[in-house]
Amino acid sequence: MRAMLSIKPEFVKKILLGQKKFEFRKVLFKQKVTTIVVYATKPYGKVVGEFDVSNILEDAPQSIWKQTSKYAGVSKAFFDDYYYKSEKAIAIEISNFVTYSEPLTLKKFDHTIKSAPQSFMYLQ
């Protein structure tokens, strides 16, 4: 199964530079997702590439930070703020990122997608 994630452009850049190897979320997929298509949010607003999900970590935020901090791509303060009052953190491990030769608008990527996902959406 494939899913599309909305990711802020500054984090997409860190993924491309190899500085960010984990994407953090508060909610885990209900279906088994093996590939993530990356939508860089506005102001960029384009589908830029995709990656394989090599692992999904789910644990208390402090445990996840200990496991991922080297390649989190975010500061500890940002991480703590994101998971403030959360009992669970999810880290999606990024592998085999493929950048599309031409970034695509949502309409060009799939004409049935009407708007960018708030967090994620499953793809057919």
Rank of each mutant, 00 (worst) to 15 (best):
R2I: 04
L5K: 02
K8S: 05
K8P: 00
E10Q: 15
F11G: 04
K14F: 08
K14N: 10
I15A: 00
I15F: 03
L16P: 01
Q19E: 12
K20Q: 10
K21T: 00
V27D: 00
L28K: 14
K30A: 11
K30Q: 12
Q31H: 11
Q31A: 07
Q31C: 01
K32G: 01
T35H: 12
I36R: 08
V37D: 09
A40W: 00
T41I: 00
P43C: 05
K46D: 00
V47C: 03
G49K: 04
G49Q: 01
G49F: 03
F51L: 03
V53M: 04
S54M: 08
L57A: 07
E58W: 03
E58C: 15
A60C: 04
Q62Y: 05
W65K: 04
Q67S: 09
S69A: 12
K70W: 02
K70H: 07
V74H: 02
V74E: 06
A77N: 13
F79W: 11
D80Y: 08
D81A: 13
D81G: 13
Y82Q: 12
Y84T: 04
K85C: 11
K85Y: 12
E87M: 15
E87P: 15
A91T: 10
I94D: 11
F97M: 13
V98C: 04
T99W: 02
Y100V: 11
Y100I: 12
L104K: 15
L106F: 07
L106M: 09
K108I: 06
F109E: 08
D110I: 09
D110F: 14
I113R: 09
K114F: 10
S115C: 05
Q118S: 15
S119A: 14
M121Q: 15
Y122T: 10
Q124E: 09
